[in-house]
């Protein structure tokens, strides 16, 4: 029996994330945990929590899971795992161990599907040098899969979303638009080669980005997922008390994303993200509407957005491209905190 996982979902991948605006409301009610060993906690909305074990070792801990983004169970496993591990890389850390998290409707789907998803996850984990040492599955429909991952990093080499410094340039390592392509896939508007390209992007690990960031002493980065490029940029700007300016004309886009956005194939998550950022965002008058909405597009297993000193920025871009992150490009800059935390302009 050939199973199409997409028949089971409405919102796939990081589009299935709860609205960032709502999330912030809920998180406010959580007790604040204070412990000097918590180096990165819930307050800065970073990609992962970081806990200092001793002066030489800090643990980076994160989890992520979501419903299917593609028809094939094995590929879904790979994408979900790459996405979960990405948060560890965004903190500049090395992933070491992980647990599977799975929700699966065993009465609706054959167990081979279950096995294929796990195998996809395991293969991606092994590519990352990560050991999966357990997990947990419950009955639920649609299926959902992801990992809880632990990585390690030297406490002084943590790359946080709060460390952006005015004058830094912004580099993005993967094209955006996977949310639009996924929506187009479901509506049969995306071409096969566009879907293939988007899936390849989502499967690709951000490991090289972590390595390059450590090599060049990058201090501030985040990975771009469900809140879209603009949403994550805003979180970074807030956490660092700076303003980020993104030049939309320079954004790398995955093939077909612009065409689909222009046809109106803009997923609901993009509007949710727009709603989240707009109060704190300056929009230039002449913005291209489709590019604006693509900057809001929820990414699944998106790229790393990093803040890099201007004098090494070209070298960093070259190093990323040599490591296979060929779409890496400078997309904007960090400025002193202005009236708004985020500025979207056409050209810098």
């Amino acid at each position: 029996m050939k199973v199409d996982l997409l028949d089971f979902v409405e919102a796939g991948g990081c589009s299935a994330k709860i609205s960032p605006k709502q999330l912030e409301e809920f998180l406010k009610f959580l007790p604040v945990v204070s412990d000097p060993n918590i180096l990165v906690g819930i307050d800065t909305h970073d990609d992962a929590g970081v806990y200092r074990v001793n002066d030489d070792l800090a643990l980076v801990f994160t989890t992520d899971f979501f419903p299917p983004v593609c028809s094939d169970p094995y590929e879904f496993g790979q994408i979900a795992a790459a996405n979960s591990i990405s948060d560890v890389y965004a903190m500049g850390a090395t992933p070491v161990i992980a647990l599977n998290i799975m929700m699966f409707p065993s009465t609706l789907l054959p167990l081979e599907v279950y096995a294929s998803i796990l195998r996809g996850g395991a293969d991606k984990a092994s590519e990352a040098g990560l050991r999966i040492i357990g997990g947990h599955t419950i009955e639920d429909n649609p299926p959902k899969y992801g990992l809880a991952v632990i990585g390690y990093v030297h406490p002084e080499r943590i790359i946080a979303n709060s460390a952006a410094v005015p004058g830094d340039l912004l580099i993005l390592t993967k094209p955006i638009g996977t949310g639009v392509i996924l929506a187009g896939q479901k509506l049969k508007m995306a071409k096969d080669e566009e879907i293939r390209e988007a899936k390849a992007l989502m499967k690709s690990l951000n490991a090289a980005a972590a390595g390059v960031m450590q090599k060049f002493g990058v201090k501030a980065a985040t990975d771009v997922t469900g809140f879209g490029l603009s949403g994550h940029a805003l979180k970074m700007a807030r956490a660092g008390k700076v303003t980020l300016e993104i030049s939309l004309a320079s954004l790398p886009l995955t093939g077909g994303a612009y065409r689909l956005a222009d046809e109106g194939c803009i997923p609901g998550a993009a509007f949710r993200n727009l709603d989240f950022v707009e109060d704190e965002t300056f929009f230039a008058d002449d913005l291209d509407y489709n590019l604006k909405m693509l900057s809001m597009d929820a990414q699944t297993s998106g790229g790393i957005l990093m803040c890099v000193r201007e004098d090494v920025s070209d070298e960093v871009v070259s190093a990323l491209r040599e490591e296979g992150m060929t779409a890496s490009v400078i997309i904007g800059k960090v400025m002193e905190k202005g009236e708004k935390h985020l500025r979207l302009v056409n050209n810098a």
């Binding site: 509506l187 046809e263 109106g264 194939c265 803009i266 997923p267 609901g268």
Partner: peptide
């Protein structure tokens, strides 16, 4: 129809 299909239809119209 669910999002974004209605938006696509609007844009087409």
């Amino acid at each position: 129809q669910l999002c974004p299909a209605p938006l696509i239809a609007t844009k087409r119209a």
